[in-house]
Computed example of a mutant assay.
Amino acid sequence: MHLIFVMIGVLLYSSISRTIFDTPLLWVVEVSQFMMAAYYLLGGAYSMQLDSHVRMDLFYSNWSPKRKAGTDAFTSIFLVFYLVILLIGAISSTAYAIEYGQKNYSSWAPPLAPIKIIMTFGIFLMLLQAVATFFKDLAKARGETL
């Protein structure tokens, strides 16, 4: 959660460097993009754990807790499927980046392996949390307590 402050510092440093010292920095945009990707991918599982993600609340708020849990368990199946496919692609992409020393196509040309490792780890954590949430919702839909 504190990574956002680091990103703000990097962007502020870039702004000061460009306006006061008249020296634009090549690396700032990519570093801030990498930080933002790490921020939301690592924060996804945490927001799911806190149940603070956004829902379409048109009908959902009027349902009973058992029906909400059943609906959440059902939709979690699709989320787990999506995350498994995403994780397979992330592992493949990370292995490629490590094996061939993949770099970004820019004038700064940073290595992509570190951010791909972080992204893969974030997707894995999200998958673990989605599976845990599925079983929690399934138990609640069946009227059981954990």
Rank of each mutant, 00 (worst) to 15 (best):
A97K: 01
I117D: 02
L128Y: 14
Y100R: 09
L50R: 10
L3M: 10
I118C: 01
R55H: 13
I91Y: 10
T120R: 07
D137C: 11
F121G: 00
F34Q: 05
A113I: 10
V10A: 07
A132M: 08
L25V: 06
F21A: 02
T75G: 01
S15W: 00
S76E: 04
Q49R: 15
A69F: 05
F81P: 00
V131D: 02
G43Q: 11
I123N: 11
S32G: 08
L87G: 15
S61L: 07
I8D: 01
Q49M: 10
L138G: 04
P65V: 02
G70I: 08
Y13T: 15
A90S: 14
L83W: 08
L125W: 06
I77W: 07
I16H: 09
S92L: 06
I4W: 11
I118Y: 07
I88N: 03
K116P: 03
N104M: 04
S15P: 13
I123K: 00
L26A: 14
Y46D: 04
D137R: 10
S93V: 06
G89C: 05
I85F: 08
G89W: 13
Y100W: 04
P110E: 12
L83V: 10
L127D: 09
M119I: 15
A45Q: 11
G9T: 09
D137L: 05
R55D: 09
S61C: 02
F74Y: 11
V6F: 06
I85S: 08
F124Y: 14
I98R: 09
F121D: 07
S64L: 08
S76H: 13
D72Q: 07
S92I: 13
R142P: 01
G122H: 10
I77S: 12
F134H: 05
F21V: 05
V29A: 13
I16M: 02
V80A: 12
D57S: 07
A141W: 07
M1D: 02
S76F: 04
I98A: 04
Q33H: 11
M119N: 10
Y100C: 00
M1S: 14
I16K: 00
H53T: 05
L83Q: 06
L112M: 13
S76R: 13
F74V: 14
G89A: 07
I85L: 15
F59G: 00
P24C: 06
L112A: 00
F134E: 02
I77V: 15
A95S: 14
D137S: 14
L41I: 13
S17H: 09
A132W: 15
F34H: 09
V80L: 11
L138V: 01
I20Y: 15
Y40S: 01
I123C: 12
V31R: 03
T75V: 09
M126V: 01
F21H: 07
D22T: 14
D137T: 04
L127P: 05
L26M: 14
L112V: 01
V54N: 02
M119P: 00
K140D: 01
I85T: 14
V10L: 07
